[in-house]
Write a protein that binds this DNA or RNA. Structure first.
Length: 278
DNA sequence: CTCACATGTTAAG
DNA sequence: TTAACCTGTGAGC
């Protein structure tokens, strides 16, 4: 589930359910028990996402830092007649009389000070979902780097919140090969990629899915059966290895880049060349 | 049933 | 560069 849009959406759900309210905090599974005890019965001030990091603020500048990792889930339920008993390994539970949020499988769930939070935010790149984000901070790193743009886009110090799906889809939409060195990009190209990311990720927050396919390229428009990925959205290349490109019919390719699968169309994204985004 | 794999990150070798 | 971690799902036997 978790690229940046998921975390921002989650922060919104947590705020709707709990912001400004006194909450019960517990750790049925036990790994967060000591911290939960300190927070139990306090007012949850607000939740905020920064890239893939989630912070839940409590009085006294204390922050629950959550990172979902690859498989974490944070399920929020509101409008309940009764709060159900926890099911499975619930690391953190936040609850009122009519709402509950259960955290499972996260890679991180810790009680942090504001200094710890600030330090992580200071190290992070600009987050396309945050209104004051500065794309030139990312550009300063991209323009100097010999690393592939496909690696740079996933580096949270370059950009905060972009994951494997947005990476693959953004590169496709801008006809950029994932192995192309960052320093070979032009600034105008980066600016249009950033604007696109801002729109795509904002839509992801609204809908809870990653949709990147233009209306004229949907399988329906192309006379193919609709096909959705696991995340529930319509995509050009992510996890479409061996299937035809929605635009040019060439088979989608895949490779492992720094331990992560990357996907591209070798006709639409020719190696080390690029054209203006379509 | 077992196994591989996943929208991620960190630590060990 | 590889393994480990946390959990769920889907493919294959």
């Amino acid at each position: 589930m978790p690229e940046g849009h998921t975390l921002h959406r989650l922060a919104g759900h947590l705020n709707d359910a709990f912001a400004g309210r006194r909450v019960g905090v517990s750790s049925p599974q036990g790994r967060f028990a000591d911290s939960a005890e300190l927070l139990d019965g306090q007012v949850l001030e607000r939740a905020e996402a920064w890239g893939k990091q989630l912070f839940i603020e409590f009085p006294g500048e204390r922050f629950v830092h959550v990172h979902l990792g690859l498989i974490g889930k944070f399920d929020v339920h509101t409008g309940l007649d009764e709060v159900p008993l926890p099911v499975g390994q619930v690391r953190l539970r936040i609850a009122t009389h009519d709402a509950v949020a259960d955290l499972r499988g996260a890679i991180a769930c810790e009680l942090w000070t504001s200094a710890q939070r600030d330090a992580v935010i200071a190290k992070a790149g600009p987050d396309p979902i945050r209104s004051n984000a500065d794309p030139m901070r990312a550009w300063q790193r991209i323009r100097r780097s010999a690393k592939p743009i496909g690696v740079l886009l996933m580096d949270q110090k370059v950009l905060a919140g972009v994951g494997n799906v947005y990476r693959a889809e953004l590169l496709y939409r801008h006809r950029v090969h994932p192995l192309r060195p960052g320093k070979t990009l032009r600034i105008g190209q980066w600016q249009s990629m950033w604007l696109d990311l801002v729109e795509l990720m904002a839509e992801g927050v609204r809908t809870g899915r990653i949709d990147t396919v233009l209306p004229e390229h949907t399988p329906e428009a192309m006379g193919r059966p609709p096909r959705r990925d696991d995340h529930g959205g319509e995509v050009y290349v992510y996890r479409r290895t061996g299937q035809p490109c929605l635009v040019c019919e060439r088979v989608i390719r895949t490779a492992v880049l720094e331990g992560r699968n990357v996907f591209w169309c070798s006709r639409c994204q020719p190696a080390f060349r690029s054209r203006a985004p379509g």
